[in-house]
């Protein structure tokens, strides 16, 4: 009798516990949703505003647009030249991505798989780049790129983006390549593979996860980079979206929806890219965090 009673009581207690836990979880979710809404709202607001008429924006800055004014996008894309800037941003991002991955992975391969004199020195030399802020490069680069004919060229800017990305990329790729077992490489050498084919056919394919992570970080940062692009480009032919957007107000003095359309053109691709590539971001940061 007592046994069954205590059993019933403990079941009741367990049920109460479960309810309490559920309540706590609900409360947590409510708080998290509030913060999530705050994080996403700017994006939503930009999208809504980009479809409004200017007077509607002033009358009702938060509501849905009553008449969707798609022509804001046309104005931004054509008159404010966001179309050109968009193409430039795509070319720059892709070009600098290929450059930085090639440069960093070859160096990381040599540093990860071989012993050589001055290795420690080369390593320290590259890592010193972590301490160099981009802002002290501006004047020297503005002068230097003019001297060597890279000023106001997307190719020159891509090379600069690759250069400033080298320390971080070499650091991460070397750490990954060091974990690849030596046996695979030895088998390839037995088959008569040279240094390049070991790199290109063995190490590089096996480094794919690390390359994907670095590529994701590079895409996200190159798409948003502002100050180097501002200083090293001078005309529409090589301007990128972040620079273009900062010049937009000149074109549209009292057309905030037009500016919002330009912002949407800048923001939406990077949000989509992040949605597809987010696991690489998480992986990269996690790897960094565990190294402390």
């Amino acid at each position: 009798m007592t046994v069954t009673r205590s059993k019933a009581a403990s079941i009741r207690a367990a049920r109460r516990d479960r309810w309490a836990q559920r309540l706590v979880q609900c409360g947590l979710h409510a708080g998290l949703m509030a913060w999530g809404a705050l994080a996403v709202y700017p994006l939503v607001w930009v999208l809504l505003t980009s479809l409004k008429y200017t007077r509607e924006l002033y009358a009702d800055p938060f509501g849905l647009p009553k008449h969707w004014k798609w022509s804001n996008y046309q104005e931004a894309w054509v008159y404010a030249k966001m179309g050109t800037y968009f193409l430039n941003s795509v070319l720059l991002t892709v070009g600098s991505l290929i450059l930085v991955l090639f440069l960093a992975s070859t160096a990381a391969f040599a540093l990860a798989r071989f012993e050589f004199r001055l290795k420690g020195l080369v390593w320290g030399y590259i890592l010193f780049g972590f301490l160099i802020p981009h802002s002290i490069l501006l004047v020297p680069l503005a002068i230097f790129t003019r001297q060597i004919g890279l000023y106001n060229r997307l190719g020159g800017l891509a090379l600069v983006y690759a250069a400033v990305g080298i320390p971080w990329n070499v650091f991460f790729l070397r750490a990954f390549m060091e974990t690849i077992p030596k046996e695979l490489e030895e088998a390839a050498i037995m088959d008569g593979a040279g240094m390049w084919s070991v790199f290109w056919r063995v190490i590089l394919p096996l480094s794919q996860p690390a390359l994907a992570t670095m590529a994701t970080f590079h895409i996200l940062s190159a798409w948003s980079e502002y100050i180097l692009a501002l200083v090293l480009t001078g005309t529409t032919v090589s301007r990128t979206l972040p620079v273009g957007i900062s010049l937009l107000e000149g074109h549209f003095t009292s057309n905030e929806p037009g500016v919002a359309a330009g912002m949407a053109i800048t923001i939406v691709p990077v949000v989509l890219a992040f949605a597809f590539l987010q696991r690489y971001v998480i992986k990269g940061i996690t790897a960094g965090a565990l190294k402390g």
Binding site: F102, A107, F116, G129
Partner: peptide, 27 residues
């Protein structure tokens, strides 16, 4: 060639060169 100083140099040089020219030298 494998692991010879020349081979290693060819692998390390492009990155070190670009980094030196466009980051370290300007700084």
């Amino acid at each position: 060639w494998y692991g010879s100083p020349v081979g290693i140099f060819l692998f390390v040089f492009p990155a070190v060169g670009v980094y030196t020219a466009l980051m370290l030298y300007p700084s």
